[in-house]
């Protein structure tokens, strides 16, 4: 984290959370129609939190995740990531910011079909502006962390769904990000595998990584400390869960 030392100092002095949204809104224009996907969304998420975002389909969860991941920009309001307003950051710097700060985990894993597991994990490193050490060694360690050290030379088609998602998580972790954004990570997995995966997320969170998880499954959401519920593009609930499974584990 030394590379962000200047930024962390600033954050601490202002006591900024890792994520702050203020009156965040996103409109979609399709021809004559204007669809409000997100409206007046304001919340903070501190470093080290484990937050579940819930809501029925069309409630704006995915739109929010795209905004939080800086893959999309809001049409109104502000989003501060790590103390900086995303709207003020140029596209290339945003790409670098994603590379350093955010790890993505998708429902469909999004592994490249003809790439071996080790190379999948290395991928974000190849876009890192600063290189450190042996890429393959780093990737191997990361695979070991998710329990796949003996699957390094496997193609996605040779791995089970749970294993593929672990490779994707190793890929998300390779640049030691502060934030993991997981969009329905268990959506394509069975119950037992889902539970394993959630335990992995808890372990990562225990190591200090902030995790934001989109799910419509209350069982899965129960692993988080906090639950933010969306409906029609607005927040309807935002509260800590006292009986979080996380607390039981730790």
């Amino acid at each position: 984290m030394t590379r962000h030392s200047d930024m962390s100092v600033r954050n601490r002095s202002k006591e900024f959370p890792l994520i702050r949204t203020r009156k965040l809104g996103r409109l979609y224009r399709t021809g004559e129609q204007v669809v409000t996907a997100l409206k007046d969304v304001s919340f903070d998420i501190n470093e080290g939190e484990f937050v579940a975002i819930m809501g029925p389909s069309g409630s704006g969860k995915s739109t929010l995740m795209n905004l939080l991941g800086t893959l999309d920009l809001p049409t109104s309001g502000d989003y501060f990531l790590d103390g900086e307003n995303v709207a003020d950051i140029a596209a290339d710097e945003l790409a670098d910011l994603r590379n350093r700060t955010i790890g993505f985990v998708f429902q469909q894993f999004n592994l490249l079909p003809r790439m071996r597991a080790l190379a999948q994990v290395t991928l974000p490193l190849t876009y890192a502006r600063r290189r450190s050490g042996n890429l393959k060694e780093k990737a191997r360690k990361q695979l070991a962390l998710v329990g796949l050290e003996d699957r390094a030379d496997h193609l996605p088609s040779q791995l089970s769904g749970g294993q593929q998602q672990r490779v994707a998580i190793a890929r998300a972790l390779i640049n030691s990000p502060k934030l993991i954004l997981a969009d329905e990570p268990t959506g394509a997995l069975d119950t037992a595998t889902s539970k394993d995966l959630m335990r992995l997320f808890q372990r990562l969170n225990g190591a200090g990584i902030t995790i934001i998880l989109v799910t419509h499954d209350a069982e899965i959401a129960a692993y988080a400390q906090r639950k933010i519920v969306f409906r029609d593009g607005r927040i309807v609930t935002n509260k800590n869960q006292r009986n979080s499974r996380l607390l039981k584990v730790s």
Partner: peptide, 14 residues
């Protein structure tokens, strides 16, 4: 693949 590469930090120029 292009979308994924962009998500993990590829610039458009990359």
């Amino acid at each position: 693949e292009i979308g994924l590469r962009m998500a993990v930090g590829a610039r458009r120029s990359d």
